[in-house]
Design a protein around this nucleic acid. Structure first.
Lengths: 233, 233
DNA sequence: TCACAAGGATTGTTGAACAATACTTCAATA
DNA sequence: TATTGAAGTATTGTTCAACAATCCTTGTGA
Protein backbone atom coordinates (compact mmCIF):
# COMPACT_ATOMS: atom_id res chain seq x y z
CA UNK A 1 0.00 0.00 0.00
CA UNK A 2 1.15 3.56 -0.61
CA UNK A 3 2.58 5.15 2.54
CA UNK A 4 -0.63 6.54 4.08
CA UNK A 5 -4.03 7.85 3.05
CA UNK A 6 -3.09 11.33 4.18
CA UNK A 7 -2.71 12.56 0.62
CA UNK A 8 -6.40 13.30 0.60
CA UNK A 9 -5.91 15.79 3.40
CA UNK A 10 -3.16 17.51 1.47
CA UNK A 11 -5.02 18.44 -1.68
CA UNK A 12 -6.43 21.94 -1.66
CA UNK A 13 -9.89 22.59 -0.35
CA UNK A 14 -12.59 22.83 -2.95
CA UNK A 15 -13.60 25.96 -1.11
CA UNK A 16 -17.20 26.76 -1.90
CA UNK A 17 -16.89 25.51 -5.44
CA UNK A 18 -19.08 22.60 -4.58
CA UNK A 19 -21.74 24.15 -2.41
CA UNK A 20 -21.88 27.22 -4.60
CA UNK A 21 -24.79 26.46 -6.83
CA UNK A 22 -27.78 28.56 -5.95
CA UNK A 23 -29.13 30.66 -8.77
CA UNK A 24 -29.89 33.49 -6.39
CA UNK A 25 -26.25 33.66 -5.34
CA UNK A 26 -25.04 33.62 -8.91
CA UNK A 27 -27.40 36.44 -9.78
CA UNK A 28 -26.18 38.30 -6.71
CA UNK A 29 -22.56 37.85 -7.81
CA UNK A 30 -23.42 39.10 -11.26
CA UNK A 31 -25.21 42.15 -9.95
CA UNK A 32 -22.47 42.85 -7.43
CA UNK A 33 -19.96 42.92 -10.23
CA UNK A 34 -22.03 45.32 -12.29
CA UNK A 35 -22.53 47.57 -9.30
CA UNK A 36 -18.89 47.66 -8.30
CA UNK A 37 -17.55 48.37 -11.76
CA UNK A 38 -20.07 51.10 -12.30
CA UNK A 39 -22.26 49.53 -14.95
CA UNK A 40 -25.21 50.16 -12.64
CA UNK A 41 -25.20 53.76 -11.58
CA UNK A 42 -25.87 54.65 -7.94
CA UNK A 43 -29.52 55.43 -7.42
CA UNK A 44 -30.61 53.35 -10.39
CA UNK A 45 -33.78 51.39 -9.93
CA UNK A 46 -33.82 47.65 -10.46
CA UNK A 47 -37.12 46.51 -11.87
CA UNK A 48 -38.00 43.00 -10.83
CA UNK A 49 -39.82 42.21 -14.01
CA UNK A 50 -37.27 43.59 -16.45
CA UNK A 51 -34.24 42.18 -14.65
CA UNK A 52 -36.02 38.86 -14.32
CA UNK A 53 -36.56 38.73 -18.07
CA UNK A 54 -33.00 39.84 -18.70
CA UNK A 55 -31.40 37.17 -16.52
CA UNK A 56 -34.04 34.54 -17.24
CA UNK A 57 -34.84 34.02 -13.59
CA UNK A 58 -38.13 34.27 -11.80
CA UNK A 59 -39.08 37.22 -9.65
CA UNK A 60 -38.78 35.14 -6.50
CA UNK A 61 -35.23 34.13 -7.23
CA UNK A 62 -34.36 37.69 -8.10
CA UNK A 63 -35.77 38.91 -4.83
CA UNK A 64 -33.58 36.49 -2.92
CA UNK A 65 -30.57 37.95 -4.69
CA UNK A 66 -31.77 41.45 -3.77
CA UNK A 67 -31.91 40.50 -0.12
CA UNK A 68 -28.32 39.33 -0.21
CA UNK A 69 -27.03 42.53 -1.75
CA UNK A 70 -29.23 44.63 0.46
CA UNK A 71 -27.50 43.16 3.47
CA UNK A 72 -24.20 44.23 1.96
CA UNK A 73 -25.52 47.77 1.64
CA UNK A 74 -25.04 47.73 -2.10
CA UNK A 75 -28.79 47.88 -2.68
CA UNK A 76 -31.41 49.72 -0.69
CA UNK A 77 -34.85 48.25 -0.45
CA UNK A 78 -37.74 50.68 -0.09
CA UNK A 79 -40.96 48.99 0.82
CA UNK A 80 -43.51 48.89 -1.97
CA UNK A 81 -41.22 51.02 -4.09
CA UNK A 82 -38.50 48.67 -5.19
CA UNK A 83 -34.77 48.24 -4.88
CA UNK A 84 -32.20 50.82 -5.90
CA UNK A 85 -28.45 50.83 -6.23
CA UNK A 86 -27.19 52.44 -3.06
CA UNK A 87 -26.07 56.03 -3.32
CA UNK A 88 -23.62 56.67 -0.49
CA UNK A 89 -23.31 60.21 0.76
CA UNK A 90 -20.52 62.06 2.53
CA UNK A 91 -21.73 60.82 5.92
CA UNK A 92 -21.54 57.25 4.65
CA UNK A 93 -17.95 57.76 3.58
CA UNK A 94 -17.12 59.16 6.99
CA UNK A 95 -18.73 56.16 8.62
CA UNK A 96 -16.94 53.68 6.41
CA UNK A 97 -13.65 55.26 7.35
CA UNK A 98 -14.55 55.02 11.03
CA UNK A 99 -14.95 51.31 10.62
CA UNK A 100 -11.90 50.93 8.42
CA UNK A 101 -9.78 52.70 10.99
CA UNK A 102 -10.97 50.40 13.73
CA UNK A 103 -10.40 47.21 11.78
CA UNK A 104 -7.34 47.93 9.66
CA UNK A 105 -5.37 49.65 12.40
CA UNK A 106 -6.12 46.81 14.78
CA UNK A 107 -5.03 44.41 12.07
CA UNK A 108 -1.71 46.14 11.50
CA UNK A 109 -0.98 46.37 15.21
CA UNK A 110 -1.73 42.66 15.54
CA UNK A 111 1.05 42.03 13.02
CA UNK A 112 3.20 39.86 15.30
CA UNK A 113 0.39 37.30 15.52
CA UNK A 114 -0.48 37.48 11.84
CA UNK A 115 -0.70 34.22 9.86
CA UNK A 116 2.31 33.19 7.82
CA UNK A 117 1.78 34.45 4.28
CA UNK A 118 -0.47 37.35 5.29
CA UNK A 119 2.22 39.99 4.85
CA UNK A 120 3.18 38.48 1.52
CA UNK A 121 -0.38 38.94 0.30
CA UNK A 122 -0.07 42.64 1.06
CA UNK A 123 3.10 42.79 -0.99
CA UNK A 124 1.42 41.03 -3.89
CA UNK A 125 -1.31 43.66 -3.90
CA UNK A 126 1.29 46.41 -3.93
CA UNK A 127 2.92 44.97 -7.02
CA UNK A 128 -0.42 44.38 -8.65
CA UNK A 129 -1.14 48.08 -8.25
CA UNK A 130 2.23 49.15 -9.60
CA UNK A 131 1.79 46.90 -12.60
CA UNK A 132 -1.58 48.47 -13.28
CA UNK A 133 -0.06 51.92 -13.06
CA UNK A 134 2.59 50.94 -15.57
CA UNK A 135 -0.17 49.98 -18.00
CA UNK A 136 -2.16 53.11 -17.33
CA UNK A 137 -4.98 50.83 -16.17
CA UNK A 138 -6.84 53.11 -13.77
CA UNK A 139 -9.59 50.61 -13.13
CA UNK A 140 -6.91 48.10 -12.24
CA UNK A 141 -5.33 50.48 -9.75
CA UNK A 142 -8.64 50.73 -7.94
CA UNK A 143 -8.99 46.97 -7.89
CA UNK A 144 -5.46 46.57 -6.59
CA UNK A 145 -6.12 49.11 -3.86
CA UNK A 146 -9.13 47.11 -2.76
CA UNK A 147 -7.03 43.96 -2.67
CA UNK A 148 -4.36 45.82 -0.72
CA UNK A 149 -6.67 46.87 2.07
CA UNK A 150 -8.37 43.51 2.15
CA UNK A 151 -4.92 42.05 2.65
CA UNK A 152 -4.30 44.52 5.48
CA UNK A 153 -7.47 43.33 7.16
CA UNK A 154 -6.31 39.77 6.54
CA UNK A 155 -3.47 40.30 9.01
CA UNK A 156 -6.00 39.58 11.74
CA UNK A 157 -6.56 36.12 10.32
CA UNK A 158 -10.26 36.45 11.05
CA UNK A 159 -12.84 35.15 8.57
CA UNK A 160 -15.43 37.53 10.00
CA UNK A 161 -13.18 40.54 9.59
CA UNK A 162 -12.30 39.40 6.07
CA UNK A 163 -15.95 39.23 5.14
CA UNK A 164 -16.66 42.61 6.68
CA UNK A 165 -13.74 44.18 4.87
CA UNK A 166 -14.93 42.71 1.60
CA UNK A 167 -18.32 44.32 1.98
CA UNK A 168 -16.94 47.57 3.28
CA UNK A 169 -14.53 48.03 0.40
CA UNK A 170 -17.18 47.10 -2.15
CA UNK A 171 -19.42 49.76 -0.72
CA UNK A 172 -16.59 52.24 -0.69
CA UNK A 173 -15.89 51.53 -4.31
CA UNK A 174 -19.52 52.23 -5.06
CA UNK A 175 -19.03 55.60 -3.42
CA UNK A 176 -16.36 56.46 -5.97
CA UNK A 177 -18.84 56.31 -8.78
CA UNK A 178 -20.66 59.20 -7.19
CA UNK A 179 -17.51 61.27 -7.35
CA UNK A 180 -16.58 63.56 -10.18
CA UNK A 181 -13.23 62.22 -11.38
CA UNK A 182 -12.47 58.84 -9.82
CA UNK A 183 -10.07 58.06 -12.60
CA UNK A 184 -6.68 58.64 -11.05
CA UNK A 185 -7.85 58.94 -7.50
CA UNK A 186 -5.74 56.11 -6.16
CA UNK A 187 -2.56 56.62 -8.12
CA UNK A 188 -0.99 59.04 -5.60
CA UNK A 189 -1.38 56.47 -2.86
CA UNK A 190 0.56 53.68 -4.52
CA UNK A 191 3.90 54.80 -3.12
CA UNK A 192 2.43 55.17 0.33
CA UNK A 193 1.01 51.65 0.06
CA UNK A 194 4.47 50.34 -0.71
CA UNK A 195 6.02 52.26 2.15
CA UNK A 196 3.56 50.76 4.61
CA UNK A 197 4.19 47.31 3.19
CA UNK A 198 7.94 47.71 3.65
CA UNK A 199 7.35 48.62 7.29
CA UNK A 200 5.22 45.52 7.72
CA UNK A 201 7.82 43.31 6.11
CA UNK A 202 10.43 44.81 8.42
CA UNK A 203 8.29 44.09 11.45
CA UNK A 204 7.74 47.76 12.36
CA UNK A 205 4.05 47.30 12.93
CA UNK A 206 3.43 50.31 15.13
CA UNK A 207 5.14 52.65 12.69
CA UNK A 208 3.13 51.07 9.90
CA UNK A 209 -0.04 51.75 11.87
CA UNK A 210 0.87 55.41 12.20
CA UNK A 211 1.52 55.65 8.49
CA UNK A 212 -1.77 53.95 7.73
CA UNK A 213 -3.59 56.33 10.04
CA UNK A 214 -2.09 59.20 8.11
CA UNK A 215 -3.33 57.68 4.88
CA UNK A 216 -6.84 57.43 6.29
CA UNK A 217 -6.86 61.09 7.25
CA UNK A 218 -5.76 62.27 3.85
CA UNK A 219 -7.86 59.91 1.77
CA UNK A 220 -11.00 60.54 3.80
CA UNK A 221 -10.51 64.27 3.56
CA UNK A 222 -10.07 64.15 -0.18
CA UNK A 223 -13.07 61.89 -0.62
CA UNK A 224 -15.38 63.93 1.55
CA UNK A 225 -14.39 67.08 -0.25
CA UNK A 226 -15.20 65.44 -3.57
CA UNK A 227 -18.64 64.74 -2.15
CA UNK A 228 -19.30 68.10 -0.62
CA UNK A 229 -18.49 69.80 -3.90
CA UNK A 230 -20.96 67.79 -5.91
CA UNK A 231 -20.09 66.63 -9.43
CA UNK A 232 -22.05 69.41 -11.13
CA UNK A 233 -25.76 68.85 -10.73
CA UNK B 1 -49.29 83.18 8.41
CA UNK B 2 -47.40 81.44 11.20
CA UNK B 3 -43.76 82.49 11.29
CA UNK B 4 -42.30 79.93 8.89
CA UNK B 5 -42.92 76.39 7.68
CA UNK B 6 -39.75 75.19 9.38
CA UNK B 7 -41.67 73.52 12.18
CA UNK B 8 -42.04 70.49 9.97
CA UNK B 9 -38.30 70.05 9.94
CA UNK B 10 -38.20 70.19 13.72
CA UNK B 11 -40.46 67.27 14.54
CA UNK B 12 -38.68 64.01 15.22
CA UNK B 13 -38.03 61.55 12.45
CA UNK B 14 -40.46 58.68 12.19
CA UNK B 15 -37.41 56.46 12.03
CA UNK B 16 -38.24 53.12 10.43
CA UNK B 17 -41.63 52.88 12.06
CA UNK B 18 -43.22 53.64 8.74
CA UNK B 19 -41.19 51.60 6.33
CA UNK B 20 -41.09 48.57 8.64
CA UNK B 21 -43.75 46.36 7.21
CA UNK B 22 -42.40 43.46 5.24
CA UNK B 23 -43.63 40.06 6.33
CA UNK B 24 -40.26 38.51 5.66
CA UNK B 25 -38.59 40.94 8.06
CA UNK B 26 -41.17 40.29 10.74
CA UNK B 27 -40.66 36.56 10.38
CA UNK B 28 -36.92 37.12 10.56
CA UNK B 29 -37.35 39.16 13.76
CA UNK B 30 -39.47 36.43 15.25
CA UNK B 31 -37.00 33.70 14.37
CA UNK B 32 -34.08 35.78 15.57
CA UNK B 33 -35.73 36.14 18.95
CA UNK B 34 -36.35 32.42 19.23
CA UNK B 35 -32.79 31.67 18.25
CA UNK B 36 -31.01 33.97 20.66
CA UNK B 37 -33.20 33.08 23.61
CA UNK B 38 -32.58 29.42 23.03
CA UNK B 39 -36.01 28.26 21.97
CA UNK B 40 -34.42 26.96 18.77
CA UNK B 41 -31.46 24.80 19.65
CA UNK B 42 -28.23 25.17 17.69
CA UNK B 43 -28.10 22.66 14.88
CA UNK B 44 -31.86 22.36 14.67
CA UNK B 45 -33.26 22.07 11.21
CA UNK B 46 -35.88 24.52 10.00
CA UNK B 47 -38.30 22.87 7.63
CA UNK B 48 -39.71 25.26 5.08
CA UNK B 49 -43.04 23.51 4.90
CA UNK B 50 -43.64 23.10 8.61
CA UNK B 51 -42.46 26.57 9.57
CA UNK B 52 -44.50 28.00 6.74
CA UNK B 53 -47.62 26.34 8.05
CA UNK B 54 -46.77 27.39 11.59
CA UNK B 55 -46.32 31.08 10.76
CA UNK B 56 -48.93 31.12 8.03
CA UNK B 57 -46.53 32.44 5.43
CA UNK B 58 -45.59 31.01 2.07
CA UNK B 59 -42.35 29.19 1.45
CA UNK B 60 -41.05 32.06 -0.64
CA UNK B 61 -41.53 34.60 2.11
CA UNK B 62 -39.97 32.23 4.60
CA UNK B 63 -36.97 31.77 2.36
CA UNK B 64 -36.46 35.53 2.22
CA UNK B 65 -36.39 35.56 6.01
CA UNK B 66 -33.87 32.72 5.97
CA UNK B 67 -31.57 34.70 3.73
CA UNK B 68 -31.63 37.61 6.12
CA UNK B 69 -30.71 35.50 9.13
CA UNK B 70 -28.18 33.56 7.13
CA UNK B 71 -26.31 36.76 6.45
CA UNK B 72 -26.22 37.38 10.20
CA UNK B 73 -24.68 33.96 10.66
CA UNK B 74 -27.54 32.82 12.86
CA UNK B 75 -28.64 30.30 10.26
CA UNK B 76 -26.52 28.23 7.96
CA UNK B 77 -27.86 27.33 4.57
CA UNK B 78 -26.73 24.04 3.11
CA UNK B 79 -27.63 23.71 -0.52
CA UNK B 80 -30.37 21.20 -1.21
CA UNK B 81 -30.36 20.20 2.44
CA UNK B 82 -32.08 23.07 4.17
CA UNK B 83 -31.32 25.69 6.78
CA UNK B 84 -30.12 24.96 10.29
CA UNK B 85 -29.64 27.02 13.39
CA UNK B 86 -25.95 27.85 13.46
CA UNK B 87 -23.82 25.83 15.83
CA UNK B 88 -20.73 27.91 16.62
CA UNK B 89 -17.61 26.04 17.61
CA UNK B 90 -14.59 27.04 19.63
CA UNK B 91 -12.89 28.52 16.57
CA UNK B 92 -15.93 30.68 15.96
CA UNK B 93 -15.78 32.02 19.50
CA UNK B 94 -12.11 32.83 19.04
CA UNK B 95 -12.91 34.64 15.82
CA UNK B 96 -15.75 36.61 17.35
CA UNK B 97 -13.43 37.77 20.09
CA UNK B 98 -10.85 38.82 17.50
CA UNK B 99 -13.44 41.08 15.95
CA UNK B 100 -14.78 42.29 19.28
CA UNK B 101 -11.30 43.26 20.38
CA UNK B 102 -10.74 45.26 17.22
CA UNK B 103 -14.03 47.10 17.40
CA UNK B 104 -14.66 47.58 21.10
CA UNK B 105 -11.11 48.56 21.99
CA UNK B 106 -11.07 51.06 19.14
CA UNK B 107 -14.39 52.37 20.39
CA UNK B 108 -13.17 52.86 23.94
CA UNK B 109 -9.98 54.56 22.79
CA UNK B 110 -12.05 56.89 20.63
CA UNK B 111 -13.84 57.99 23.78
CA UNK B 112 -12.91 61.68 23.54
CA UNK B 113 -14.79 61.95 20.24
CA UNK B 114 -17.75 59.89 21.40
CA UNK B 115 -21.25 61.31 20.94
CA UNK B 116 -22.86 63.04 23.90
CA UNK B 117 -25.01 60.47 25.68
CA UNK B 118 -22.97 57.46 24.55
CA UNK B 119 -21.23 56.99 27.89
CA UNK B 120 -24.55 57.36 29.69
CA UNK B 121 -25.93 54.45 27.64
CA UNK B 122 -23.10 52.30 28.93
CA UNK B 123 -24.01 53.28 32.50
CA UNK B 124 -27.64 52.41 31.91
CA UNK B 125 -26.65 48.94 30.77
CA UNK B 126 -24.53 48.49 33.90
CA UNK B 127 -27.49 49.29 36.12
CA UNK B 128 -29.78 47.11 34.06
CA UNK B 129 -27.43 44.20 34.71
CA UNK B 130 -27.20 44.89 38.43
CA UNK B 131 -30.96 45.09 38.67
CA UNK B 132 -31.24 41.72 36.95
CA UNK B 133 -28.73 40.24 39.37
CA UNK B 134 -30.78 41.52 42.28
CA UNK B 135 -33.79 39.66 40.91
CA UNK B 136 -31.81 36.52 40.23
CA UNK B 137 -32.79 36.92 36.58
CA UNK B 138 -29.92 35.14 34.83
CA UNK B 139 -31.43 35.55 31.41
CA UNK B 140 -31.68 39.26 32.13
CA UNK B 141 -28.02 39.46 33.07
CA UNK B 142 -27.10 38.05 29.69
CA UNK B 143 -29.34 40.54 27.94
CA UNK B 144 -27.86 43.39 29.94
CA UNK B 145 -24.36 42.25 29.07
CA UNK B 146 -25.25 42.34 25.40
CA UNK B 147 -26.62 45.84 25.81
CA UNK B 148 -23.47 46.83 27.67
CA UNK B 149 -21.12 45.80 24.91
CA UNK B 150 -23.36 47.24 22.24
CA UNK B 151 -23.14 50.49 24.14
CA UNK B 152 -19.36 50.19 24.21
CA UNK B 153 -19.36 49.82 20.44
CA UNK B 154 -21.70 52.80 20.30
CA UNK B 155 -18.90 55.04 21.52
CA UNK B 156 -17.67 55.11 17.94
CA UNK B 157 -20.93 56.71 16.86
CA UNK B 158 -20.90 54.60 13.72
CA UNK B 159 -24.11 53.06 12.39
CA UNK B 160 -22.13 50.38 10.58
CA UNK B 161 -20.23 49.40 13.70
CA UNK B 162 -23.48 49.38 15.66
CA UNK B 163 -25.03 46.98 13.19
CA UNK B 164 -21.98 44.76 13.18
CA UNK B 165 -21.90 44.67 16.97
CA UNK B 166 -25.55 43.75 17.06
CA UNK B 167 -24.99 40.76 14.83
CA UNK B 168 -21.79 39.76 16.54
CA UNK B 169 -23.31 39.73 20.00
CA UNK B 170 -26.39 37.88 18.79
CA UNK B 171 -24.15 35.21 17.36
CA UNK B 172 -22.11 35.11 20.53
CA UNK B 173 -25.22 34.63 22.55
CA UNK B 174 -26.11 31.72 20.34
CA UNK B 175 -22.76 30.22 21.22
CA UNK B 176 -23.72 30.21 24.88
CA UNK B 177 -26.50 27.78 24.22
CA UNK B 178 -23.92 25.25 23.14
CA UNK B 179 -22.20 25.57 26.50
CA UNK B 180 -22.89 23.38 29.44
CA UNK B 181 -23.95 25.84 32.14
CA UNK B 182 -24.57 29.29 30.68
CA UNK B 183 -26.72 30.16 33.65
CA UNK B 184 -24.51 32.37 35.77
CA UNK B 185 -21.78 32.83 33.24
CA UNK B 186 -21.97 36.58 33.17
CA UNK B 187 -22.58 37.33 36.82
CA UNK B 188 -18.88 37.51 37.75
CA UNK B 189 -18.31 40.18 35.13
CA UNK B 190 -20.87 42.65 36.39
CA UNK B 191 -18.44 44.35 38.77
CA UNK B 192 -15.83 44.56 36.08
CA UNK B 193 -18.36 46.12 33.75
CA UNK B 194 -19.08 48.80 36.33
CA UNK B 195 -15.38 49.44 36.90
CA UNK B 196 -14.83 50.00 33.19
CA UNK B 197 -17.83 52.28 33.05
CA UNK B 198 -16.49 54.38 35.93
CA UNK B 199 -13.23 54.79 34.06
CA UNK B 200 -15.12 55.90 30.96
CA UNK B 201 -17.17 58.39 32.95
CA UNK B 202 -13.96 59.74 34.46
CA UNK B 203 -12.44 60.17 31.03
CA UNK B 204 -9.68 57.58 31.57
CA UNK B 205 -10.22 55.98 28.22
CA UNK B 206 -6.85 54.31 27.81
CA UNK B 207 -7.06 52.70 31.22
CA UNK B 208 -10.56 51.58 30.40
CA UNK B 209 -9.26 49.99 27.21
CA UNK B 210 -6.67 48.03 29.17
CA UNK B 211 -9.31 46.81 31.58
CA UNK B 212 -11.54 45.80 28.71
CA UNK B 213 -8.70 43.94 27.06
CA UNK B 214 -8.23 42.03 30.29
CA UNK B 215 -11.91 41.15 30.30
CA UNK B 216 -11.65 39.81 26.78
CA UNK B 217 -8.75 37.56 27.68
CA UNK B 218 -10.50 36.05 30.67
CA UNK B 219 -13.94 35.70 29.10
CA UNK B 220 -12.60 34.19 25.91
CA UNK B 221 -10.49 31.73 27.82
CA UNK B 222 -13.41 30.65 29.95
CA UNK B 223 -15.68 30.32 26.93
CA UNK B 224 -13.24 28.35 24.83
CA UNK B 225 -12.61 25.98 27.72
CA UNK B 226 -16.34 25.40 28.05
CA UNK B 227 -16.32 24.43 24.39
CA UNK B 228 -13.27 22.24 24.41
CA UNK B 229 -14.68 20.23 27.28
CA UNK B 230 -17.96 19.47 25.56
CA UNK B 231 -21.22 19.45 27.52
CA UNK B 232 -21.38 15.66 27.85
CA UNK B 233 -22.13 14.06 24.50
C1' DT C 1 -20.74 -6.09 5.72
C1' DC C 2 -20.98 -3.72 1.71
C1' DA C 3 -22.86 -2.04 -2.64
C1' DC C 4 -26.68 -0.53 -5.06
C1' DA C 5 -31.18 0.41 -6.63
C1' DA C 6 -35.97 2.09 -5.63
C1' DG C 7 -38.82 5.11 -3.24
C1' DG C 8 -40.14 8.98 -0.57
C1' DA C 9 -39.23 13.50 1.28
C1' DT C 10 -37.33 18.14 0.92
C1' DT C 11 -35.44 21.80 -1.38
C1' DG C 12 -34.69 24.81 -5.84
C1' DT C 13 -37.03 27.32 -9.15
C1' DT C 14 -40.61 28.71 -11.97
C1' DG C 15 -44.93 30.87 -13.46
C1' DA C 16 -49.27 32.75 -12.62
C1' DA C 17 -52.47 35.05 -9.89
C1' DC C 18 -54.35 38.57 -6.81
C1' DA C 19 -54.08 42.25 -3.24
C1' DA C 20 -51.82 46.36 -1.72
C1' DT C 21 -49.34 50.26 -2.63
C1' DA C 22 -47.12 53.86 -5.30
C1' DC C 23 -46.95 56.76 -9.37
C1' DT C 24 -49.17 59.42 -13.21
C1' DT C 25 -52.50 62.00 -15.32
C1' DC C 26 -55.92 65.18 -15.56
C1' DA C 27 -59.81 67.60 -14.27
C1' DA C 28 -61.84 70.64 -10.75
C1' DT C 29 -61.52 74.15 -7.43
C1' DA C 30 -59.98 78.07 -4.72
C1' DT D 1 -51.37 79.60 -10.67
C1' DA D 2 -51.19 76.37 -7.33
C1' DT D 3 -53.37 72.82 -4.97
C1' DT D 4 -56.58 69.21 -4.21
C1' DG D 5 -58.89 65.00 -5.57
C1' DA D 6 -60.04 61.18 -8.29
C1' DA D 7 -59.43 57.74 -11.60
C1' DG D 8 -56.26 54.57 -13.97
C1' DT D 9 -51.86 52.35 -14.54
C1' DA D 10 -47.65 50.18 -13.12
C1' DT D 11 -45.00 47.86 -9.67
C1' DT D 12 -44.27 45.46 -5.66
C1' DG D 13 -45.85 42.01 -1.78
C1' DT D 14 -47.41 37.55 -1.08
C1' DT D 15 -49.45 33.31 -2.01
C1' DC D 16 -50.18 29.06 -4.39
C1' DA D 17 -49.34 25.13 -7.23
C1' DA D 18 -46.37 22.62 -9.96
C1' DC D 19 -42.17 20.29 -11.42
C1' DA D 20 -37.12 19.29 -11.48
C1' DA D 21 -33.12 18.24 -8.78
C1' DT D 22 -31.14 16.47 -4.89
C1' DC D 23 -30.79 14.14 -0.60
C1' DC D 24 -32.04 10.54 2.73
C1' DT D 25 -33.88 6.14 3.87
C1' DT D 26 -34.87 1.56 3.13
C1' DG D 27 -34.57 -2.84 1.44
C1' DT D 28 -32.48 -6.12 -1.54
C1' DG D 29 -28.76 -8.97 -3.06
C1' DA D 30 -24.16 -10.56 -3.14
Amino acid sequence: MTATGDWIDDLPDAGEDLERSSTAERVADLLRGHIINGALAPGARLSEERLGRKFRVSRNTLREAFRLLGHERLLVHEFNRGVFVAKPGAEDVVDMFRMRRALELAAVRSGPQAPAEAVGTVGAAVEQGEAARACGDWEGIGTANMAYHRAIGGLLGSPRVDETMRQLLAELRLAFHVMAAPRDFYAPYLDRNRAIYELLAAGSFDTAAEELAGYFDIAENQLVRAFTVPPRA
